[in-house]
Amino acid sequence: MLGKTANGLYWMYRYLERAENTSRLVETGQRIALTRLGSTENEWRSVMESAAMLPGYEAANGEVTKDTAIDWMLRATDNPSSVMSSIASARHNARLVRTALTGEVWNAVNGAYMRARTLLARKVNERDLPGILGEIRQGTALVRGATHGTMLRNDIYDFARIGTFLERGDNTARILDVKYYVLLPSVRSVGSAVDNVQWETILRSVSARGGFRMEYGSTLDPRDIAQFLILDRRMPRSLAFCTRKLRDNLGYLDNDYGTRAESYLKADHIERSYLSHDIDAVFDFGLHQFIQKVVGLYAELGAQIERDYRFYE
């Protein structure tokens, strides 16, 4: 496979994942706004911070308001990570690597793009927001389904998965990074109504509310939440899950190519050193420091993958 193709696949799936994550964050933000009285600009600020979009927003729009924030996250063409930009980038990369995709995957990603263009052609009315977000995620889910159902399990698939899980792990880590303070032991005992909203927000941001309830019942506990989102290997957006998948897929590549790449060792190191302990060890390390460390290691891993598989030169 060409290095360029591996690069295109990796980014196609990163952008698809990003589009989904951003739309989920918008949904969460909207929900908090609806269940709260008074100003919600701080919530939108932290939502955009989780999506790493706040500096760009402030430079372009200044003051944070709900409508502008939603528009920035969904439609803004000068925001490279907005849902529309992400889907457009995913499709652009899909066009670049079209020879590596099955017809069904291409049709799904092109269909998702065409649909998103129509749905996001103009400012989204509050009433239409839930429907539109749902439809957009349906589009990206179809790409994932077609990928799962029709693609050969070879290096093409491995790079698709690597892009997916690096983006997803990074996304979960960033949500935790913005909200870590509500999970700290000092707040644990308090459990005020405000805390409950914050905890629920975190779970919703990673589509984990149902899964959490199944595992822990309906009482929210910050320690359990941290355990669930960081270390639970059954939770498909947890750091441990994403890292394991990264390691596995890098391992398949290695087996396929008959090499032992540096990136595999890096992923293995993240898993062993940071995601194989008890949640208490994480709190002892310092939750914030821990999250920052993982975010940094993910970035290094991304750069190493680019080098190992000759994405550029």
């Binding site: 290095g3 360029k4 591996a6 590549l253 030169e313």
Partner: peptide
């Protein structure tokens, strides 16, 4: 795609050891 061969651009190609070669993941 239909021929099952690689689609390359100039920057994927280099002359190495007197041959035109494409930069692959390997």
């Amino acid at each position: 795609d239909q021929m099952g061969v690689e689609l390359v651009e100039g920057h994927d190609l280099h002359v190495v050891d007197g041959r035109v070669q494409m930069r692959t993941t390997r």
